[in-house]
Design a binder for these strands. Structure first.
Lengths: 232, 232
DNA sequence: GCTGTAGGTCTACAGTGTAGACAAGATTAT
DNA sequence: ATAATCTTGTCTACACTGTAGACCTACAGC
């Protein structure tokens, strides 16, 4: 008789924090956060569930680790282009990673991001510092840069959450459901909404993000021009 | 010997969906989502836990109901002011309600809002219809109005999530923690962030929201002016 | 050899969501 | 009034959860 070996890597070699977290992320990716139980994770790594506690204090800490693992996947870019292009690039990059791990996104918005700005792990703060640099170099006052950072990431996470909701497994079923859902609405109470049925059907997340960014960046450009006019 | 009567209303009168949901919301408000277990809720309403299942199919459905209950608290305004003022007003109203139920906010962003737009309960869609009307009346093309709605609420929920993270029980401890956290960062790697310590300390959510809205609305005003220039 | 420590395992406990059978009260049909 | 049905709340039971605490085993340094 042997240990089980069906799922994932068997109990070969020693464990490590990252190997445990990677297995956890895999589980979350495939079956959602709810499915990540200590016992299932133990089975996935071919070890006793209790062994996990050597690498994470408890389940919450484990989930926080998973979130950090996801955030580590977002790539950073050198600060060499126009600030607007730079922000666009960073936004799309974060979106890309989130779409790779949709089930883990709830952990990002209520997990380690649930710590106030100043207290997050250094790795998480690097993008913040970079955005601040970009904005200040573009001509914004540091204090404004901070507020802009918040507005920017607020919008970004908001968009990603929206897009993930729109994302449904079967697009055909989605279409049928949507038509049904819309017809249920009384025409006289929801005239605009019902007339927008076609637009509701073809949702393009990347384009939607871009359009939102355009609005936001236009507003920022405005603000920047005003500042410079005032100080010169 | 009697039934317990310490917590909440005792087992007087018949239950109803809303009474159950209200008790559930109270529990969430006071002790967080995790603390809302069927058994504890049963205790709070002075009934057997199983009775809850007559009013909610399962725990998820129960949480969705709680989320709807919260959303029902946001008031709506007649459509009588400038569209920008209207959007500002609605944003602050949603923020107000969310700050009243911070523990329930995660349910809003991953709960019934986790349904694609067209499939949400009619009550949830009313704000959408109203915003669409406001924007179209202001001069936007319907398709644009939809995208703007998305950008607007995306930003709004993003801001609220951010603000809730910033919200900590004890502000004094917050200040101490933040100072410590910042000093831990190497000055040469985080020059901007460390220089912003004072601004990080005084966080005013309402003002922050307003500044973000200003940026966004400025961008929108731009877009609107362009449209009208093109079509006249 | 001996000792200390880190990694992995085992058992056990209190708590979870919920299926399914049942009881009592209300409502309706006859 | 009697009988039938439906609604509401209760009870028991089951599979599953996170994790405390004792253990065991292998390797480190001396």
């Amino acid at each position: 008789m042997e240990r089980k070996g069906a799922s994932g890597q068997n109990g070969a070699g020693r464990l490590s924090r990252t190997s445990v977290l990677k297995a956890a992320l895999e589980l979350v990716d495939e079956h959602g956060v709810e499915a990540l139980s200590m016992r299932r994770l133990g089975q996935a790594i071919g070890r006793d569930p209790m062994s996990i506690y050597r690498y994470a204090a408890n389940r919450q800490e484990l989930l926080a680790g998973v979130a950090e693992l996801v955030l580590d996947e977002v790539e950073t870019f050198p600060d060499d282009t126009h600030w607007q292009a730079q922000l666009r690039r960073m936004a799309h990059e974060l979106r890309r990673v989130c779409l790779l791990h949709p089930n883990a996104v709830p952990l990002l918005v209520t997990g380690p991001l649930s710590t106030p700005l100043g207290l997050r792990p250094a790795g998480t703060l690097r993008p913040l510092e970079q955005v601040l640099g970009t904005l200040i170099r573009a001509g914004f006052v540091p204090a404004d840069a901070l507020h802009i950072y918040r507005a920017f990431y607020g919008f970004l996470y908001g968009h990603i959450l929206n897009e993930l909701q729109e994302l449904i497994a079967d697009p055909d079923e989605n279409e049928a459901l949507l038509r049904l859902g819309l017809q249920r609405l009384p025409l006289r109470d929801f005239p605009h909404l019902r007339s927008l049925a076609p637009e509701l059907l073809e949702y393009d997340g990347s384009q939607e993000l871009d359009e939102g960014l355009t609005i936001l960046l236009a507003g920022l450009g405005h603000q920047l021009a005003d500042n410079e006019a005032r100080y010169t």
